[in-house]
């Protein structure tokens, strides 16, 4: 179940720096841990996160094993025009999560 929570201001002034906060529900299993019987727990992590603003990439992150479970990614961008912010997380075992948010310039 790919679930995410994204916080984007509903509106902003042109040229304003806006903060975007994202949270994705994910175990981020490192692949280094073992069970009590010694079996290795296979790696299961989010590997990439991308945010596009009206189709233009404004933020990208590569995630690795050291990132905590339920990764919180917060970043800023400049509000240039009204439009859509699209978020995409991809990871091991075919994990994909997407989210869209509308931003209005006032």
């Amino acid at each position: 179940m790919a679930r995410v929570a994204v916080t984007v201001p509903a509106s902003a002034k042109r040229g304003e720096v806006i903060e975007i906060k994202t949270l994705a529900a994910h175990v981020m299993e490192t692949g280094f841990r073992r069970t009590q019987t010694g079996e290795l727990l296979p790696r299961d992590i989010i590997t990439d996160f991308v945010c596009t603003y009206n189709g233009v990439e404004v933020f990208r992150a590569e995630l690795h094993q050291a990132v905590a479970a339920n990764p919180l990614i917060a970043f800023t961008t400049v509000a240039t025009e009204s439009g859509t912010l699209e978020f995409k997380w991809t990871g091991d075992n075919g994990y994909v999560a997407t989210h869209k948010a509308e931003l209005k310039i006032v």
Partner: peptide, 9 residues
């Protein structure tokens, strides 16, 4: 912040 508290899920 309710939106960054990981207990949200």
């Amino acid at each position: 912040d309710d939106t960054t508290n990981p207990a949200l899920f």
